[in-house]
Computed example of a mutant assay.
Amino acid sequence: MEGNRFETVKLATQFWNSDSETTTIIVVLSIIGFIIFFTAGFLFQKYRKERSVFEYFKRYALDRELTPEEIKLLWAYAQKMGRDPMVVLEFKAPFEKVVDLYLQENPNADERIIKDMRKKLGFEILSPYIPLVSTKDIELFQNATLIHQNKSYNATLYDKDERYMYWLLSDAIPSDLKSGDLIKIIFIRKDDAIYTVIVPIEKILNENGKIVIQTPHTFEMSRTQRREYPRVRTELPVKVFYHDEKEDKQYTLHGEMVDISAGGARICFNGKPDIIKRFKYADIIQIEFTLLDIKIKSYLKLLDKIEYANNLCIRGTFEELSAQIEQKIHEYVQKEQKKLAQLKNA
Score class of each variant (00 low, 15 high):
residue 235 E to K: 15
residue 297 K to A: 07
residue 81 M to H: 03
residue 16 W to A: 14
residue 321 L to V: 05
residue 269 F to W: 04
residue 78 A to R: 00
residue 234 T to P: 05
residue 268 C to P: 03
residue 303 L to Q: 10
residue 126 L to I: 11
residue 160 K to S: 13
residue 130 I to V: 15
residue 92 K to Q: 12
residue 155 A to S: 13
residue 243 H to N: 05
residue 301 K to I: 04
residue 106 N to H: 04
residue 339 K to A: 04
residue 332 Y to R: 02
residue 331 E to F: 00
residue 316 G to I: 07
residue 22 T to W: 08
residue 291 L to W: 15
residue 308 Y to V: 03
residue 284 I to Y: 07
residue 144 A to G: 13
residue 66 L to H: 07
residue 239 K to W: 01
residue 2 E to C: 01
residue 12 A to F: 02
residue 2 E to I: 06
residue 5 R to P: 05
residue 33 G to K: 11
residue 98 V to Q: 03
residue 195 Y to L: 09
residue 64 R to L: 15
residue 228 E to P: 00
residue 130 I to C: 09
residue 28 V to P: 04
residue 75 W to S: 07
residue 279 F to A: 14
residue 93 A to V: 03
residue 11 L to I: 11
residue 262 A to V: 06
residue 200 P to K: 08
residue 45 Q to V: 15
residue 252 T to Q: 05
residue 298 S to P: 02
residue 22 T to I: 12
residue 185 I to F: 08
residue 290 T to P: 05
residue 345 N to S: 13
residue 232 V to Y: 09
residue 80 K to S: 10
residue 133 V to Y: 03
residue 246 K to G: 01
residue 102 Y to W: 13
residue 250 Q to F: 01
residue 295 K to D: 15
residue 345 N to R: 10
residue 83 R to K: 10
residue 83 R to D: 13
residue 220 E to D: 11
residue 218 T to S: 09
residue 158 Y to V: 02
residue 169 L to T: 05
residue 116 D to P: 06
residue 185 I to N: 01
residue 215 T to S: 06
residue 260 I to R: 06
residue 37 F to W: 14
residue 277 K to D: 14
residue 281 Y to R: 15
residue 321 L to W: 03
residue 297 K to N: 15
residue 177 L to G: 10
residue 334 Q to M: 12
residue 316 G to Q: 12
residue 54 F to V: 08
residue 42 F to C: 07
residue 233 R to A: 08
residue 71 I to Q: 00
residue 19 D to M: 13
residue 307 E to S: 12
residue 135 T to Y: 08
residue 334 Q to S: 05
residue 114 I to F: 01
residue 39 T to A: 04
residue 42 F to S: 12
residue 40 A to P: 01
residue 237 P to W: 01
residue 96 E to Q: 10
